[in-house]
Design a protein around this nucleic acid. Structure first.
Lengths: 222, 222
DNA sequence: TTTTTAATTGACCATACGGTCAAAACATTT
DNA sequence: AAATGTTTTGACCGTATGGTCAATTAAAAA
């Protein structure tokens, strides 16, 4: 599995090859992400994915041994991508600033990478057959820590006493909604796509309601 | 399509037959709703639906001429069910009372009929191939009217000036979330299912944040 | 250059899919 | 009882699916 990676600045042949390999795989993963997210696991056929990636189907199955395997790889890539950009909240932060930033980044992610959120959503709706363990072993401990942070803020009278669990769910739901229900939202607003100004307006509205509900003022330097 | 329905209290033979027919269809619709909601359109096979309903597959296709047709019928039933229980908000209502009630009913629906919300969600995520027109022709006019109500409240200084569009989206998102992401929520809270007390706690938390953000107090007689 | 290894691909396979059909079973009317 | 209409159902069909495989090509190592 593992491969020795040269630290040398000049890429070796091994390095080149591995790079090409990853590039090929990334191309297939991109296509798979697009199709899985729009058509669901069963709706996206290996054939369609291969076409989307402009490679023969057998090649897809050469890199990813099965459809399950490919689906899992797509999910893992999404999760690692999310973990990269995830800004934490911690006890010593100023609640208003930290929460505003958190909301803003979540809205950005939802509007700019909606496919990832949608794929995640369908996986959960199906009963999380692949992510169940991940949520139990990774998300839950992280979740509990954040609950503690929120509770600490409440105890220190920094925010109004709201059930921290549902507060966190509310931030997740109101931001993710703009990805998952994008189609409906755009129809209702008679728009073709989100613009930069929408991201600002969404963030402001969500922050206004949630921070307001917590008895906080919107931070100055947004 | 339409059939003369006897108002007579004693059911005629025709009536009996029609009733049996509707009962059969309802059984199939129930099974289809369950499977479409958990496995998606493509994931739910006609065979599986027939098994779930304990009838041969050919019988399903006798009542619903195609898979598309069946899927559409399931969606229509959900929408008509939703429209039945939907409580409106209108200009003369007391904002706090009306919004609280609206939130409460949405939470109830999400927790008690999660499959319907989930099926709706996957339909939207797929790009609303069947509901696109419905949303344009029915939901959008309704949506615009509600926006007007909210704007009127703002203009009358009854609620804080928040973008009414995003306020409405926020109510929808935070309530539907408990249906669509039920699996994740239960894992995170280490629960097996929602209880009545959860419905109360969820409603209270959402109402506290949203009403608070609007500068309203929670209504007394809840 | 020769040998070895990795990547690409068209052809192929068993299975499961949505959908059809005609025959049987059942009920209703004449 | 006969005739008519409606449901029920097993058998069947063409097609698309996920996946395999052996043959070919490309690249790296010897």
């Amino acid at each position: 599995m593992s491969q020795i990676v040269e630290i040398n600045s000049e890429p070796t042949k091994q390095n080149k090859k591995e790079l090409a390999r990853q590039k090929s795989q990334a191309l297939i993963l991109d296509a798979a992400e697009r199709l899985f997210s729009s058509s669901g696991y069963d709706g996206a056929s290996m054939n369609a994915i291969a076409n989307e990636a402009n490679v023969p189907k057998a090649n897809v199955l050469y890199y990813f041994k099965s459809k399950d395997n490919l689906y899992e790889a797509v999910l893992e890539r999404i999760l690692s991508n999310w973990n990269l950009g995830l800004i934490d909240i911690s006890v010593n932060d100023d609640p208003a600033v930290a929460l505003y930033k958190y909301i803003y980044l979540k809205v950005r992610l939802a509007c700019e990478q909606p496919m990832q959120s949608r794929l995640f959503a369908t996986e959960i709706i199906r009963g999380a057959p692949y992510l169940g363990d991940y949520i139990r072993n990774n998300t839950r401990p992280w979740f509990r820590k954040k609950i503690e942070v929120l509770q600490a803020w409440i105890d220190a009278n920094k925010i109004a006493p709201v059930d921290p669990t549902h507060l966190l769910f509310m931030i997740w739901s109101s931001t993710q909604y703009y990805a998952d229900y994008q189609t409906e939202i755009l129809i209702l607003q008679n728009k073709l796509e989100y613009e930069e100004s929408d991201i600002q307006a969404i963030t402001r509205s969500i922050a206004q309601l949630i921070l307001g509900g917590l008895g906080l003022k919107l931070p100055e330097n947004r």
